[in-house]
Structures are given as C-alpha cells and as structure tokens.
Design a protein around this nucleic acid. Structure first.
Length: 500
DNA sequence: GGTGCCGGGCG
DNA sequence: CGCCCGGCACC
C-alpha cells in the first residue's frame, strides 16, 4: 500500500518540481540532473547559460575564480577588447564572474563577442592589461582573436572546456539568430531588421529559457537542451548553440574527442553502428556531408561566402554544422565516401527539432548508441526520481491518465514506445519527450526491459486487465463502508489503493 | 454468486 | 471531468 501511495504522490510532486524548477534561480533539480548525466561535473552547463544570459547571479557567485585583475565591468561600460586583430571599443553587455567572461558589444563591428576578462580593459586605459594574453598575436597581421581563440572547434581536452565556453557563448550571443548579427536584448538599437528576422525562434527560445515551461514542464535543469518542440522548421544556429553547449557535448569531448577531430570520420565503427555525419545548419540548407572538412568548406563557400578576410565570419563555419549520428545501414546505401547529401529522410526532421547532441561520438554504447545516449541523457535524466514516492491515495485514479503510472504491463506497453523506437532512427526518440516520457525510467532496469518487450504476454486478456489478487477496497472495507473505498473502486474502476 | 474493472452514459 | 453503473470476465 505504501508503495502505491507513494508512487502516486511522487508523480505529483515530480510535476511540481519540474514546473517550479526552471524559473527559480537555482533549482535543486539542477545538481540532480547533472548527476544523472553521469558525466563529470559540468561547469559548462551552468556557465554557458549564465555567463552570457544573465549576470546578476553570477555576480553573487564566487568572485575569485581566476585571480587576475578582477575588474568589475559594468553594464554599458565602455571598454576595449582585442578582436579581429585590432583593438576595438565596445560596451559591456554583461560580466560573468564565474566564467571570467565579459560579453562586449562591439560598436564598430556591431556585434557581440564574449571573451575573457583579461582581454578586456576599460576604455580609459589605452592598453591591455600587461600580463594578459593578448598582444602576442594581436599585434601581428591577421590574427583574429588573441590566443586560444584561434583553435578550431575540434579540440583536445586541454582546451576543450575553455573553447566550449567560448564557442557556446559566442554562438548564443552573436550568432544566435542569423548568420549576420544579432542585436542583444538590451541594446535594441537600430538593428530591428535582423532582430525581426530572428524573432520567431527567439521567442520560443526565450520562453524556454525563462523556464516558464508553458507546455509540459519537462524542463531540463539548466542546460539549454530544453527542446520545447520549437516550431522552427529547420535548424537554426540556436540549436547549434545548444548543441555545443549541451552537457552531452561536453561528454562527447571527454569520451571521444577523436571522432570529432577526424577529418574523415568514416572510421566505420561496427556495422550497423551509428555513423557520424555533418549536417549544415544553415537555414534552408541542411546539407549533410560525411567529412568535417567537407562541411566546413560547404559552409564557408556557400554560406559564409568564403570571405576569408572578414574577421567576423572567420571560422564561423564551425557553428553552422553539427554532427549527426546516422545509422550505418542508412548511409551505407549511398555508399562510398564523400559528399552526396545522403538520406536526410531519417535525420533531418528530428534533427531540426533536436538539440543536436552533436560533437559526441557514441563510443560507449556499441549497440544502439543513438538511443542509449540520446534518450537518457537528454530528456529522461532530467526527471526527479527522488520525489517519486508519495501521492495521495484516493485520487490516484484521476491522476492516472495524465501521469501514466507504471502500474501494469498495459500501461507500460502503452508507454514503451518511448523507449522502444530504438533502431528506427537513432535520433527520433527525442521527439516527444513529454511529461510522461520520463516515467518509464523509474522502474528498475529489470522492469524496464520487461516494459519494452511486453505487450503480448497477457495475450488472452488482450483488452482486459488481469484481475489482481491483492485485496481491494471492497474486500477490505466491505461494501458497507463504501465511502472508504478508493475513488476508483467506488466507481468500479481499477482499484488504485491496493494495486498488485 | 462475488468480485474487479472496462466501457460508456449522465450531468 | 466527476460520478455512476451495466455488463463482462475472472474467481
């Protein structure tokens, strides 16, 4: 009995937790979610979002992360920064202490960049901070950014984190809505045009970011993964941003950076395994190539116009493709090596909606990497299993429909699709991670497998639920105490108090 | 026949 | 949607 009660309540509280989680400043959910990710601590998670989207919290946080000259930049403060090989002036958009980063709105370039504190200095001082990284390269010819910024996205461990942050930050800020330039929320100045262009997705993005979880509340702790089934037809850089920012990304780098580094990713892993492709995320493009080089070239040539000299777009091609896992079979058909935009049939639609968990090479799950990693890490893990075990008994019946409590094999089966779509398309499962989606997670693994396979065992009672042998309200309370029955019993429905 | 509960009706 | 009940399958 207890278990039953608890199970139900759990659903409820779970819901509450989720809904409340996001908007709150630091929902207790967060750490949990991270834990579930099963990955190493992910500074990135927090940092990505916060560093470039909200400053106040950060300001409160550890103001001592890196010891240099902790100048407190203020919003709107005029500063200088090394960018594009030259010293540019701009206004401080935000200053993230935790990340040691400053987002600067460059007046000249009319774009927003996010860089380290050390690389920014108040406009009054006419030179960068002495021991800071910059000039080494900045003084020379076409250096685009001081120091590390020159490394390509594919990265090695050492630089991975830093780069990730940078990239994500930049993507989120300057690239977020169109390849051109995005006016930052605060500075609504004269860029209404480009702003208008990006509004559609931006709106949805904002919604989810703010955590107002309009729809179902399946909100993922802090990662931008939110995937609230954004209406945007094709992938926009935003998702790219997510992609690079998502915890999975980090994971990917940690676990298997090589795959991402490889120019020729065709190291055909096992047969039937997932193959890494690279998909162009440029609006209306969606070209899929097999080599990272190819995709880069494609983006650069077709979309960025190969303007090698334009600092602004330098290396931006990195942002306009994403890694995609495709079933080997699917791609194998097309056969050989490079180019042909292969079998988008499978990938494209989901991809557009997905937070493409891209630079991740499923080195882990040899069997169905796609599923294994996308499912759990993406949506499922975000649920709060901890709060699972309580519910008020009597109204569980009412609650049932919406929460899909794993009560019986039937319900499982009805749910199982969530876990089962398996091999069909490695990407698709995410498509409808809705509230109930995460529930199947709760039962222990054994149950889960049962879950997936079931469906016919009770063949004979195909429609009708097998009669449980547990005592029911009627038996326990007797017909004379009908008022003490659970609601379901009273209504001649499946008893919810004494489940078996 | 007693019981559990599905399907469906009513307000 | 809450409530109720006919009726069926199981015991």
């Amino acid at each position: 009995m207890a278990s039953v009660l608890s199970r139900r309540l759990g659903k409820r509280s779970l819901l509450g937790a989720r809904v409340l989680g996001p908007p709150g400043a630091a929902p207790p959910l967060e750490p949990q979610a991270e834990l579930l990710e099963g990955a190493a601590p992910q500074p990135f998670l927090a940092s990505k979002d916060t560093s470039c989207q909200e400053q106040p919290k950060e300001l409160l946080k550890a103001p001592g992360t890196s010891g240099l000259q902790q100048v407190a930049f203020q919003l709107g403060q005029k500063v200088c920064v090394w960018y594009g090989g030259q010293e540019c002036t701009g206004l401080v958009e935000r200053h993230s202490w935790a990340e040691d980063k400053v987002t600067v709105w460059l007046l000249d370039q009319k774009l927003q960049i996010c860089c380290k504190v050390e690389e920014v200095w108040p406009a009054e001082l006419q030179s960068p901070i002495p021991q800071a990284p910059p000039p080494e390269q900045g003084t020379q010819a076409p250096a685009y950014r001081p120091v590390s910024r020159n490394i390509d996205v594919p990265k090695r461990k050492s630089d991975a984190v830093e780069m990730d942050e940078m990239m994500a930050a930049m993507v989120l800020t300057s690239l977020s809505c169109s390849p051109v330039v995005q006016s930052p929320p605060g500075v609504e100045t004269n860029f209404s045009a480009s702003r208008a262009a990006c509004d559609p997705w931006k709106e949805s993005g904002d919604v989810s970011d703010s955590g107002s979880s309009t729809t179902s509340g399946h909100w993922s702790g802090s990662s931008g993964v939110s995937t609230p089934s954004p209406p945007h037809p094709q992938a926009s850089p935003k998702y790219l941003g997510d992609a690079f920012g998502s915890p999975q990304t980090d994971n990917g780098f940690e676990t298997d950076p090589d795959a991402f580094l490889l120019d020729e990713p065709a190291p055909r892993k096992r047969k039937n395994s997932v193959k890494v492709m690279y998909k162009c995320l440029w609006p209306n493009c969606g070209k899929v190539l097999r080599s990272i080089v190819g995709i880069k070239r494609h983006v650069k040539a077709l979309h960025l116009g190969d303007t090698v000299d334009s600092d602004q777009f330098k290396r931006e091609e990195d942002f306009y493709y994403t890694e995609v896992q495709m079933k080997e079979e699917a791609t194998a058909a097309g056969g050989s090596t490079v180019d042909p935009a292969p079998t988008p049939s499978v990938t494209s639609p989901p991809l557009a909606v997905l937070p493409p968990p891209p630079p991740k090479a499923q080195s882990s799950g040899p069997d169905h990497p796609g599923l294994e990693s996308y499912l759990p890490s993406g949506a499922l893990s975000k649920s709060a299993p901890g709060s699972f075990w309580h519910i008020q008994a009597d109204h569980a019946y009412q609650a049932l429909p919406s929460f899909q409590i794993p009560v019986s094999p039937h319900i499982y089966t009805s749910i199982s699709w969530a876990a089962a779509p398996s091999t069909a398309s490695s990407l698709s499962p995410v498509r409808s991670r809705s509230l109930s989606f995460s529930e199947p997670q709760q039962p222990p693994p054994a149950m889960k497998s049962h879950l997936i396979v079931t469906s016919s065992p009770r063949a004979q009672s195909s429609t009708r639920k097998a009669r449980g042998e547990a005592k029911k309200c009627r038996k326990v309370y007797g017909i004379e105490h009908r008022d003490q029955w659970c609601t379901a019993c009273r209504w001649k429905k499946a008893c919810q108090r004494f489940l078996d």
